[in-house]
């Protein structure tokens, strides 16, 4: 199967502090992959390096694009809309996306917005945490691209919103696109993951298929993940 993401020898330092060290990672086309790790382990940083929002050393290839500018056309990242004035209406944000992203599909957006019950007339400041996260998901998935990066889409939101978001991921991820979802609490999304990638000690500690973990260790994904930190399980 062709790879949608290929990272080689990626190292990242900030203020002379080593955050990620010599990372190699390839993701196949069409997968949903969980990116796990403690807070501050570097999950968000890894995503930011892929989009070119953060600058490290090493090779990152998305589809066939190697430069940061070219990669941006193949990656849809769940950015947090901080660049917008809080008084702006959702419909205005949608216009913005439609203007600047040629792969933004307005029909897809409206389907997603209907499903997630987003009201375009609301202003950004009027959105609850769950609503805001739904909007970010709808905008991110409305782009038709090769790689989707969802950074902690379930942080601090109610379980109904969480379920809706999970359903929309299953429903709207294009078959030939790959999705990387970061989370530090895996149980809720474990059934939808093909693979997990664990960032630990500045590098990728584990990259494994979830059903392989289940059949080989007999553990659920959360227990397996926690066992990495207890140091009890041999993982190779």
């Amino acid at each position: 199967m062709p790879n949608v993401l290929a990272i080689q020898g990626l190292t990242y330092k900030r203020n002379q502090k080593l955050i990620l060290k010599n990372i190699d990672l390839t993701l196949e086309t069409g997968k949903i992959v969980g990116l796990l790790g403690e807070n501050g382990a570097g999950k968000t940083t890894l995503m930011r390096l892929i989009t070119g929002s953060a600058q490290g050393s090493g090779d990152i290839m998305v589809s066939d694009a190697t430069t940061a500018t070219a990669r941006k056309a193949h990656v849809s990242f769940s950015e947090q809309l901080h660049g917008f004035n809080k008084n702006v209406k959702i419909s205005r944000v949608v216009d913005f996306y439609q203007t600047v992203y040629s792969d933004f599909d307005l029909n897809r957006y409206h389907e997603l917005a209907d499903f997630l019950q987003l009201n375009g007339e609301l202003k950004l400041l009027a959105l609850s945490k769950g609503m805001r996260e739904k909007l970010i998901i709808a905008l991110t998935l409305a782009r038709q691209t090769d790689l989707y990066l969802l950074d902690e889409p379930f942080g601090g939101i109610d379980s109904m919103s969480r379920k809706k978001i999970i359903s929309s991921i299953i429903q709207w991820k294009p078959d030939n696109a790959t999705m990387l979802i970061s989370d530090h609490y895996v149980t809720e999304i474990a059934p939808i993951l093909d693979e997990i990638v664990v960032v630990k000690d500045q590098t990728i500690a584990v990259h494994q298929k979830t059903d392989t973990i289940r059949s080989e260790s007999g553990m659920d994904i959360e227990d397996y993940y926690e066992s990495l930190y207890a140091g009890g399980v041999d993982h190779d």
């Binding site: 299953i170 429903q171 059934p191 093909d194």
Partner: peptide, 17 residues
Amino acid sequence: VRQLAVDLTVNVNTVQR
């Protein structure tokens, strides 16, 4: 396949398998 995946809240690839 996708409908089954949505109904069961699982991955499309897993249903396919």
